[in-house]
Amino acid sequence: NPIEQEGTYPLPQAQLDRFLLKVYIDYPDMDEELLMVKQITSDSVADKLDVSSIQEVLKPEEIISLQRYTSTLGVDEQIVAYAVNIVRTTRDWSGIETGSGPRGSIALLRAGRANAVLSGRRFVTPDDIKAVAPAVLRHRIKLSADLEIEGYRADDVLKDILSNVQAPRV
């Protein structure tokens, strides 16, 4: 909400780097927004959303167990090198003023593991790394002023990087 951002300042790059992902959540489309407004305003007081019908999917201890399992997922050395190569490429890519640091490589591997688990696999593929790379790296790179003026976004540049860094054939 732009109104609530008044008096706030963007986080420094060193603090942004500590977030695992930067996920974009756009406004709902017309039908979704209509449904949301109807649900919230029907038989409710103020902004209280009735959550009584929401069912628990996982218990907290199951989440911790899933996190432990994900952290032990096997990752081939070539996949680790691929993730590091992507991150290192952001440091030398034309149009990127500041590339990602080693935390980006770590986050890329962690998120890649999570993507593999969510896909029902016990191993990480290059596609897992590619799938999570934009969310992992978009807040870890700073585009040059020239690219920003031309309307480029971090995702545009990351797409180019992902198409140019050779994926291993595991």
Rank of each mutant, 00 (worst) to 15 (best):
Q166L: 13
G99S: 12
V51G: 15
S94W: 01
T90W: 03
D26S: 15
V23T: 13
S100F: 02
P10K: 04
L49E: 07
E97G: 10
L49G: 06
V124A: 02
I129R: 06
V37A: 14
V57S: 12
D50K: 06
P168W: 08
A133M: 00
T98M: 03
A154Q: 06
L35C: 12
V80H: 14
Q39A: 13
T72S: 15
I79D: 08
A131T: 03
R68V: 02
E6Q: 12
L158Q: 08
P134F: 09
Q13K: 11
Y27S: 12
W93D: 13
S52W: 00
E56P: 05
P102T: 14
P28N: 04
P102A: 06
V84T: 14
S44W: 00
Q5S: 15
K142G: 15
D92Q: 15
Y9V: 13
P60N: 07
V132C: 10
S163D: 10
G112P: 05
L21N: 03
D47V: 09
I25E: 10
A81P: 10
G99Y: 04
G120M: 03
P60M: 08
A111M: 05
E32P: 12
D17E: 04
R103T: 08
T70S: 10
H139C: 02
E148S: 09
L109D: 06
E62I: 02
T89P: 06
P2H: 08
A131V: 02
V124T: 00
V117H: 05
G104R: 02
K142H: 09
L118D: 05
V57I: 09
A14R: 01
I86E: 09
D127A: 13
I106T: 11
Q15C: 04
